[in-house]
Structures are given as structure tokens and as C-alpha cells.
Design a binder for these strands. Structure first.
Length: 877
RNA sequence: GGGUGAUUAGCUCAGCUGGUUAGAGCAUCACAUUGACAUUGUGAAGGUCACUGGUUCGAGUCCAGUAUCACCCACCA
């Protein structure tokens, strides 16, 4: 393409879909294809990431966009470095969330519940919905530019993953890690299912708090409707107020539905400082109460049924919903004279299902559990699931970034209770257990013979997610993929699912495979709006990544999400930030445009080997090498933001603002082209689209896709000798030009004014060599070389180079003299501090040698500057 | 109640194991504009690094305490 034909501005819309299509067509997202095509060596070291599967029914939000940007960056980087790189995509069936969404739609449209439809019909509907929704999320994922290997796409509920789930379940069942037991669970009467502890949201609410007379005691509650069955009264054994009562003592008293006999229980669970220090318990509907009851072998009586209605024990209130019953019960107690006091505004937390919104009603239920404390043998040692999870991180086999989350992780495990894995919903992995009369059978496939009834429950969605790193690679089969890519190299996700998912993957992998699921965990922050608020529908501040892509391009969005964010810290993103990165993509585009214009109008052809001629060439190549080395190191340490900033600074302030300007005076196309193409490679992982577009434009047709070009290899040698030397005299010239600009600004001389300067000393050669550059960039009219100076001049100095700007008739000398006197005293002060520092024995002895050298150089430099200043002052007077 | 983190320019944030006169982007102001780029360029202004102590030759960086904010966990009968 000719320079004239390249549009003035980069329009992402014209390129992105086309380029993504080209990448997909090439097959290079698939590491096997890369090996076939020879872009990756057969024996290359594998590098793998599994994509945290988005919910099928979800849409792409900025958090997932951030995740994709980071992962794609790392994956593209590794691929270019020559690793056998696999990034494996998939989606999650998100059982409860998906089913409740579909149920809601069906109810709104047809007024039907799932029970009207029946299990089979509902599942069909859910699957249809999931399928349609799947395509949306995949489309959105591609829009970001994700280089995922779609040929390996998995779904948590597809046949292979289902098989893995059943296999895992059976193994755990056989070893009694999974058991069935009656426990108190979080029951959602609306969804008719259990909810895990982690999936509960507490909503603060003010409700009346009642004090009732309970025999000789006063008890408090917000929930009078649970009190029918209360026949145990609990107090702390050390409570002096009640020492006359003995544990186990019976007391007759009048209660809601007539006289009852209550039993005194002394238990440390009673809080002496709360209320009267006495409480009655409802073991069937409160975990704490349930535990007290278990400790003392008390009766556990159900008061409220699964629909949230009172049972016959409530007598006249039986069948009523808890809300309506509550007031009536209080009324009845009032008429009986048992209400002591009511606090109308009592603030407390109500547990709700975060996936559906129903108010949680604890119930005692038979559920399937994973025992995290059961001891078993592993490699000759007695372990538990808990200890396996702890060891994986403690031993350093898994590294969590940022490190502080390791603490959070351990804390969570310390407080971990058995994990309830059964759910009473229909969409999900059906529990592979069958019953016949009293018999129970657990197997990967259904048992032979009739009359077997499969357990109606399904598994918690995180059960299958826990297998994700290896179920996606073919486990339980011993596949090549599993051998090659597991454990995976990196897991990158938001810190909000550390417990839900990361911990459970570690649990499943250490238990089932006796290895870790990944070596490094990189946790990104949550994406917030410009004000720092969480994005939410109710605040109407959601930034839709697709809108951003449509407006500014995927590259700009990616940069905005990656640069300026560090692991574990939240990122704020708004239009403004994205716009500034859009501007940058355009900057790069125009650099490319310039390079292209030059190449078509000059004779020289682009070449892979740069042939440095001028000082400027040496300088830019040296800087390129430094930058490439640093960027490589930073990405390898997952300091992506810093890497991006370094690259941007180099691209903009060194390459574009200096080298390209110099190129206009002193052409060297091989270097210009080399630096530019290297930059495209370095930028590619950050902004794949615009770099690939420019690569296509600037190259000849035999070129590969940039996506599989080799990462600049001399970057790796950054610790050794520099690939090119010299450049110091040119750096002086650049410094000098900057000095002159600064002086113009200082004296408030119009930067466009062309001045004459006198150059003195041994630096003549360098100036002469770069005279054209000097004249163009510093707007110098004439350069004299002389040992004698004209009367009124300002000194511009950089290192050993000295130039004197003629100021006659340009400035007000008196005012400037005063200003300079001030500056001189500041400089003197600075020198004094440096001198003190360097005369300090402790500093000399204890500081690192290079620090001391640096300080000495600084002092030398400062002294020289001061001398020049004095000289300058003298010349003004 | 327990825990974690944050506090650096008007705003958003970098600043990795202590060692330049503390940086960037945006916003502001001034100036420039035939140029690959007005999606631009050159500059300026703007900071007691929350506070108080401590360790150290040296602290934005390490330690202790205080304040404010944010988040996580537990949970109130």
C-alpha cells in the first residue's frame, strides 16, 4: 500500500473483524497448528492458560474484558517467544443463575412455574436459552481479540465434562470424602434449593425486636414465628444472674399455645452481654441453635416447611406464611400479657440468595457433602482436603499474586466447613447416585436393572468448575493434552472468586491428580467507574465493553484496562482514559504512515538488519534494545502496567518525537524500519489489531502474521553487552537541544525564534556532525565555533557540550540576573547536601558502590552546572 | 467483632528488595502549527508522599501507633 492511500486516522472498525478472521483462518490459535507450520518448535516448552469460563447466560462485562485483555497479552507474548502456547476457552453452565433466569422469563411470558412444565421440558428450555446465549458471549469474547484455541472449546455441562464430574464424584464417594448427611443448610424457599455459604448476601434491614416473658426469663427475638417449638432456654454457665438455675432443670411456663415444659441448658454460646443473656433456641432453623442442640442431644423439630409456611406444630397458625403469621403471633402474645417490650427499629442482617434474591430460611436437610476434615493417606502421609489445599500454597507450588491474598486464602481455609454440594434444582450435573428400596448405588453409569431411582438433586456448579483445568484437557482419559499442558502455567481471574473457584480447583486437583492446577495465580482488581463505584445496573454506570470497542476500538480498551492497573487493585475506567489510549493507537498508526511514506519515496528497501550510520541511529538502537529488554522482563514478572508505560514512553517521546524528527533531516531507512517493526512486535500483545494492521501494510507479502513473529530476540540479551555501543555524543546533542528549548522557555523567548549560537570547546565535531538536526530541532539559525564569546549569552550545557545562545536584544537582563541569582543559590544548596552526604563515612561504607558512584557523578555534574551558571551570570552583567 | 488493603499533584494512579532535586496520564495555563499525526507539538504551573513517633548515614519505601476510606470474613438469639 502506498503512503498516500493510508487513511490519516486509524479506524478500528475497518480492521478488527477482518483481522480476527485472518487469525482464526491461520489456525495459529491452536498450538498444534503452530508446530505443523513450523512457527513453534516441536520440543518447545508448553505454556497454558485455561480461560475462566464465563456464564453461558452472561454478557461480557468490563471485568471479563479486563481478564481477556490480560490473558491475551500474556498468551500472545508467550506465543511469540516460542512457547507451545495454549489458551483454552469454555463456558460455565452456572446452574442456579441460569435456571432462575429462564424460570423468570417463563413465568413472565407464560405465567408458568417449573413445576407446571416438569423437569424434562424445563431442561429443554434452559438448554435452548443457554445455546443462544452462548453465541453472544463467544462473539463478545472474540471482539476483544482473544487468541483462544476454539477447537478445544469446552462447556462445564457437555458430555466429556459430565463424564469427568461423575468420575470425580464416584472416587470421592468410594473414599468416603463425599457423604450424605443431615445438616442445617441455607434454604431458599423461592428457588426451592440450598445455597452455599459463599453465595449468601446479607441485606441490612430494620425490623421490630420483641422481648417476651418466657417463664421467669425475658427473651428477645426478631422472629416470633419460630418460637412455637422453643422448649430449651440457654444461658452462659458463668452468668451470675442465673446461677440458681441448673443445667437440665425443668421449668413449667405459659407460652404461645398454652403451658409447656422448658429445659435449662447451660452453654457458652450464650452471650452474657446481649439482652437479658438468655435465649431460647430453634434448632431446626438456625445453625447456631442446631449446633447447640447437637452438643446436648436435644430434639430438633421443624417449625417451618420448605415453602416457608408454618407446620401443624403452630396449631391455629399452621399453613400461614411467616410474614403474615408474625403479627398475629405477637398480637396473641400481647393478649396473654407476655410481651415485655418492642424496639421498633432494630438493625439486623437478612440472608438472601445472591443468585436469585430469595430470603434464606435455614432448614435441616439431607444433603451431599464433601468432608474437608476427613483424614486419608496420600504418599505415605495422613492428610485432609484442608491440609492438601494449604500445602499447595505453603510449599510454593502455587504462587498467588499479589502475595497478600495468600493470607486471605489461608484464613479462609482455617474457617472452612464441609462443603454442601447438592442443589435441588434441575439444571446441572445430576448426582450419580441411584436408590432402590434400601439400596444405594454410586456409579459413573446408571446401574443395571429396573426400579433404580436416580437422586433428583444436581451438583453445585463449582463442583464441575473445580475440575476445569484438567477436565478441559480430557481427564479422566490420559490424553496427550493432559500430559502436555497440565498443570497449567497461570490462572488469571478477579480476586472476587478466590474462594468460590480457585480454592476449589486446588482442592479437586490436589485430591484427584495429586498435583496443582496451576503454578501462578494472578488476581486482577475489579473494574470500577470513574467515580470508583462498582458497576451495577441500579447505578446505571455500566460500561459496556462492546460500546467502547465500537467507539474507540478494542486496542484502546485493552490498553485502558491493562495500563494503570496493578494486580489485586481495582481499576477505574471511563471514556476519558480510553480516549487517551485511542489517541495513542492513532499515534502509532501515523508513525506507521510516516514510515510507509518514506519507504515508498526512497530507494532503499526495508531490511531485517539495521545498518546504523549516524549517532542518532546508534542512539535509537541502543534505546530500543534497553526498552525491549526491560519490557520483556516486566511482562515476565507480570508487571504489565509498567511494561506498557515503558513502551509508550519510548514510542512516543523517543522514537516519534526524536528519532522520526531526526529522520526527516538525516535519513536512514533501514534503522527507521527496523525500529518500527520491532516496536510493532513489542506492542502486539498489548494491542494486537493495530499492530497487525500496520504489519500487513508495511510488509511485503511473504511475511507471516505478526501474531506468530518471533519476539525480538536481542531483548533477551539485555543483561549482557549492549548490541550496539556509542551514541553518547548524540545523546549530548539531544540533551543540548532540550536545554536550548528550556532556556527559550525560561527567558520566554518565542520557541519559533531562530537564534544564533556559539559553540566552544572540544565538542565541535559532534555539533558539526549533527548540524542539520541541531538547526531543525532547536531552531538555530547559525552556529559559530569560537573560543571567544559575544557579550550577552546564555549557556546551554549538556555534559561536556557547551553552547552559548546570543541574547542581545532578546531579553530584559536586569530581571533575568535576579532570577538567576536565585537559581544559583538553590544549586549551591543542592551541592551542599550532596557534599554532606558524600563526606559521611557511614554512607561511603554502607551504601552500594554503584550508588556512591552515582552520587559522586551527581555532585560533579552539579558543580559544573554551578560553575557554568556563574559564568553565565558574569556574561549577563 | 476479626482480617486485608489504601491514603503520593486539581483528578486517576505508578514508584519492585530503603539511595537522583518524588514520576506519568488526564485536566489547567502559555506558545506553536503548510510537516506522518489538531486524535498534534513545545513548555509552564501544581506535592510537608494522611498524621505522630521509631529504626537508619539516609525513609514515599521498613516498624509501631492514630485518623479517614474501601473491601473481605464472621454474625447479632
Amino acid at each position: 500500500m502506498n503512503g498516500q492511500e493510508i487513511p490519516k486516522a486509524y479506524d478500528a472498525k475497518d480492521w478488527e473483524d477482518k483481522l480476527y478472521h485472518a487469525w482464526e483462518e491461520s489456525g495459529f490459535f491452536n498450538p498444534d497448528k503452530c508446530i505443523e507450520a513450523g512457527v513453534t518448535k516441536v520440543d518447545a516448552v508448553p505454556f497454558s492458560i485455561v480461560l475462566p469460563p464465563p456464564n453461558v447466560t452472561g454478557t461480557l462485562h468490563t471485568g471479563s474484558a479486563c481478564m481477556l485483555a490480560i490473558e491475551d497479552l500474556i498468551v500472545r507474548f508467550k506465543r511469540m517467544q516460542g512457547y507451545r502456547t495454549l489458551w483454552l476457552p469454555g463456558t460455565d453452565h452456572a446452574a442456579i443463575a441460569t435456571q432462575s433466569k429462564v424460570e423468570k422469563i417463563i413465568f413472565e411470558e407464560e405465567g408458568k412455574t417449573r413445576h407446571d412444565l416438569g423437569r424434562e421440558e424445563l431442561l429443554k428450555r434452559v438448554e435452548t436459552f443457554a445455546k443462544a446465549s452462548h453465541d453472544t458471549i463467544i462473539h463478545q469474547t472474540k471482539k476483544i481479540g482473544s487468541s483462544l484455541d476454539w477447537s478445544r472449546e469446552a462447556y462445564t455441562l457437555d458430555e466429556k465434562r459430565n463424564f469427568a464430574v461423575r468420575t470425580a464424584f464416584k472416587k470421592m464417594f468410594d473414599e468416603a470424602i463425599i457423604y450424605r448427611g443431615e445438616r442445617i443448610v441455607n434454604w431458599d424457599p423461592e428457588m426451592q434449593t440450598t445455597v452455599s455459604d459463599d453465595e449468601i448476601d446479607y441485606v441490612e434491614k430494620n425490623s421490630p425486636f420483641y422481648y417476651f416473658q418466657y417463664g421467669p426469663f425475658v427473651i428477645g427475638t426478631v422472629r416470633p414465628e419460630t418460637k412455637f417449638g422453643d422448649k430449651y432456654v440457654v444461658m452462659h454457665p458463668d452468668d451470675e444472674r442465673y446461677k440458681e438455675y441448673q443445667h437440665g432443670q425443668k421449668i413449667d411456663l405459659e407460652w404461645i399455645n398454652g403451658p409447656i415444659t422448658a429445659t435449662i441448658i447451660k452453654d457458652t454460646a450464650g452471650d452474657m452481654t446481649f439482652g437479658s443473656g438468655v435465649m431460647t433456641i430453634t434448632p431446626a432453623h438456625s445453625r447456631i441453635d442446631f449446633e447447640i442442640a447437637k452438643r446436648h442431644g436435644l430434639d430438633i423439630e421443624q417449625i417451618i416447611d420448605d415453602q416457608g409456611k408454618l407446620l401443624p406444630i403452630a396449631k391455629e397458625f399452621a399453613g400461614q406464611g411467616i410474614k403474615e403469621a408474625r403479627k398475629k403471633i405477637v398480637e396473641k402474645l400481647k393478649t396473654k400479657g407476655l410481651v415485655v417490650k418492642v424496639d421498633e427499629q432494630y438493625a439486623h442482617n437478612i440472608a438472601t440468595n445472591s443468585r436469585g434474591g430469595g430470603v434464606i430460611e435455614p432448614q435441616v436437610k439431607k444433603q451431599w457433602w464433601i468432608n474437608v476434615n476427613k483424614e486419608f493417606e496420600r504418599a505415605g502421609k495422613t492428610v485432609t482436603l484442608k491440609s492438601l489445599m494449604q500445602d499447595a500454597v505453603r510449599s510454593g507450588k502455587i504462587k498467588i499474586l499479589p502475595e497478600r491474598f495468600e493470607k486471605v486464602y489461608f484464613h479462609w481455609i482455617d474457617n472452612l466447613r464441609d462443603w454442601c454440594i447438592s442443589r435441588q434444582i434441575w439444571y446441572g450435573h445430576r448426582i450419580p447416585v441411584w436408590y432402590k428400596n434400601e439400596e444405594i448405588y454410586c456409579g459413573i453409569e446408571a446401574p443395571e436393572g429396573d426400579d433404580w431411582q436416580q437422586d433428583p438433586d444436581t451438583l453445585d456448579t463449582w463442583f464441575s468448575s473445580g475440575l476445569w483445568t484438567f477436565s478441559t484437557l480430557g481427564w479422566p482419559e490420559h490424553t496427550e493434552d493432559l500430559k502436555t499442558y497440565h498443570p497449567t502455567a497461570l490462572l488469571e481471574t478477579g480476586y472476587d472468586i478466590l474462594f468460590f473457584w480457585i480454592a476449589r480447583m486446588i482442592l479437586m486437583t490436589t485430591y484427584l491428580l495429586d498435583t496443582v492446577p496451576f503454578k501462578t495465580v494472578y488476581l486482577h482488581g475489579l473494574v470500577r467507574d470513574e467515580q470508583g463505584h462498582k458497576m451495577s445496573k441500579s447505578l446505571d454506570n455500566i460500561i459496556d465493553p462492546l460500546d467502547m470497542i465500537a467507539d474507540y476500538g478494542a486496542d484502546a480498551l485493552r490498553l485502558a484496562l491493562v495500563i494503570g492497573s496493578s494486580p489485586g487493585n481495582d481499576v477505574r475506567v471511563g471514556d476519558e482514559k480510553i480516549i487517551s489510549f485511542r489517541n495513542f493507537t492513532n499515534k502509532l498508526w501515523n508513525i506507521g504512515r510516516y514510515v510507509q511514506t518514506q519507504l515508498t519515496t526512497s530507494d532503499s528497501q526495508p531490511t531485517i538488519v539495521p545498518i546504523p550510520k549516524s549517532d542518532a541511529d546508534h542512539w535509537i538502537l541502543k534505546r530500543l534494545q534497553d526498552t525491549a529488554g526491560e519490557v520483556t522482563r516486566l511482562i515476565e514478572n507480570y508487571q504489565l502496567s509498567l511494561a506498557g508505560e515503558k513502551l509508550r514512553d519510548f514510542t512516543w517521546t523517543e522514537f516519534a518525537d526524536w528519532y522520526v524528527e531526526i529522520h526527516k533531516v538525516e535519513k536512514n531507512d533501514t534503522v527507521l524500519c527496523f525500529v518500527f517493526e520491532t516496536l510493532l512486535k513489542l506492542w502486539h500483545p498489548f494491542m494486537p489489531y493495530v499492530t497487525e494492521a500496520l504489519w500487513g501494510i508495511s510488509g511485503n507479502n511473504t511475511k507471516n502474521l505478526l501474531m506468530v513473529e518471533q519476539w525480538p530476540s536481542f531483548a533477551k540479551a539485555s543483561e549482557g553487552k549492549p548490541a550496539v555501543d556509542g551514541a553518547s555524543s548524540f545523546q549530548l546533542v539531544i540533551g543540548l537541544i532540550q536545554e536550548i528549548r528550556a532556556i527559550k522557555a525560561f527567558y520566554q523567548i518565542d520557541p519559533a525564534t531562530k537564534l544564533s549560537i556559539t559553540v566552544r570547546g572540544e565538542s565541535q565535531q559532534s555539533i558539526q556532525k549533527n548540524e542539520a538536526i541541531f538547526k531543525r530541532l532547536a531552531r538555530i539559525n547559525e552556529i559559530h565555533f569560537s573560543e571567544t564569546l559575544p557579550p550577552h549569552t546564555a549557556l546551554a550545557q549538556c555534559g561536556s557540550l557547551q553552547t552559548f545562545i546570543e541574547l542581545e536584544g532578546v531579553i530584559d537582563f536586569d530581571a533575568e540576573t535576579k532570577r538567576l541569582e536565585n537559581e544559583k543559590s538553590e544549586k549551591a544548596k543542592y551541592i551542599a547536601t550532596l557534599e554532606t552526604k558524600l563526606s559521611n563515612k557511614n554512607f561511603i561504607e554502607r551504601a552500594k558502590p554503584d550508588v556512591v558512584v552515582a552520587e559522586r557523578l551527581k555532585l560533579e555534574e552539579a558543580r559544573k552546572q554551578l560553575a557554568d551558571f556563574e559564568h553565565h551570570l558574569a556574561s549577563l552583567v
